[in-house]
Design a protein around this nucleic acid. Structure first.
Lengths: 228, 228
DNA sequence: CAAAATAGTTAGTCATGCCTAAATTCGACG
DNA sequence: CGTCGAATTTAGGCATGACTAACTATTTTG
């Protein structure tokens, strides 16, 4: 257990870097300087400098010219920020009338300012939810969280909306089709109509509508924007 | 009207200085460098430096060796912070189970992080209160606020608590008595018992109890910790 | 496989906001 | 009216965290 006794307080910058690196290391691969710079909107040398400071504090490991990986301590900080962010979003949507798509910026600032005690009170007021309004899992105070449960587009009831998360096909032809149709991860769609007997389904996306065959739609994996 | 169009964003420090200066200028007199330094826990040279920067931005006026006064723009910023602070305290007490005396630190950090929109949503959820849990008036979004209404200690019902705000006597003997009894502005007391026919009243203060004559108690002015 | 393109790092600068030490100013008092 | 002491300001330094310019390592490609 890597204890982190009596560490000096983390700055807002440090928290943002660690959260960004956590997000970028979903694949388990080392994270590049320029990916961090792009995500945070900073110059590459600024990131290089911060990487040095963070690795001196054992929050990440740096192989020069190769990239960085979070240490256990760094991941702990990142997961604490993820928990804060997602709980704040859930709270603002449930109790203060924010909508799904407007909470992000507010949470981005608040996550650095709330105390541990306030976060736990908010969690309790929400009934200790395990997922946020975007369907993303909320880590518990130890950093453990549920896996995301993806729902195929075919299983989203007509009239509901969902966000595309993963496309479960390797066929280039299908990927190309989905791409030009705008059906990429991160896109929100509303399901309009299911034809019976495993027929095509009609969805609204942005301004227009699309009709998707059942077989392809089964490979479009979504999350639904509910607080569960 | 001193417009403040397209000003650069204010830092947390700047907001804290302006709020402190506002608090210290209750009398309308210029505020001294050392009073600001004491209140914020900073060295006098640090305050001197910040005063220079703030007066360059026309947030305050500085007469060297004489003290500072807020400009209209500076007062506007200060009142916005006061509004935020008091609304946040009220919100945390009403909706998240904080007690009167533990909200301050949390509000102190949050007041710099919440957006204008969130503050207004919180105000609305509270029913646009005009006073915070300490009885202090909450400025409206234009900076206007009600005067504090003081209640004489004699008018606080038995069983209730109040905070002493002002002592309305100039008699040194009485002031000395109140001082040694611990009955100074800022002290919280609980009223235990009123003797009939304008007799003395018994109050609890800290650990012990005191019995105060009716005439003197009438001059001890309080506010009551309710959200009105 | 070498050169060009790309990615990453080092060097040096700047703004903010804090500090201590050393002047300076003001006001009071003999 | 001069001197002493307290308050204030100036001078100079430091940490954080950003930037640009210049250099170096790696990867891609003809």
């Amino acid at each position: 257990m890597t204890a982190q006794l009596a560490s000096e307080p983390l700055t807002r910058s440090v928290e943002d870097y660690l959260k960004a690196i956590y997000r970028l290391s979903a694949e388990g691969a080392p994270v590049s300087t320029s990916d961090i710079a792009d995500l945070l909107g900073l110059s590459a040398p600024s990131v290089s400098g911060m990487i040095r400071r963070l690795s001196e504090q054992d929050l990440l490991e740096h192989a020069p010219y190769r990239g960085v990986l979070l240490t256990a301590a760094g991941r702990r900080v990142a997961l604490r920020m993820v928990r804060r962010h997602r709980l704040i979003e859930a709270y603002l949507v449930k109790f203060l009338g924010y909508s799904w798509d407007t909470v992000h910026d507010e949470a981005e600032r608040l996550e650095h300012a709330v105390s541990e005690g306030l976060i736990e009170r908010m969690a309790e007021a929400l009934g200790n939810p395990r997922f946020d309004p975007h369907g993303d899992p909320i880590p518990d105070s130890n950093g453990a969280m549920d896996e995301l449960v993806y729902t195929p587009l075919t299983d989203i009831p007509a009239g509901e909306t969902a966000e595309i998360r993963r496309v479960d096909t390797g066929q280039a032809e299908r990927l190309r089709y989905l791409e030009q149709a705008g059906l990429t991860p991160g896109t929100r769609v509303a399901v309009r109509r299911h034809e019976p007997f495993h027929g095509p389904i009609t969805i609204a996306i942005g301004a227009g509508e699309r009709v998707i065959g059942h077989e392809l739609a089964r490979q479009v994996l979504c999350v639904r924007p509910e607080i569960r």
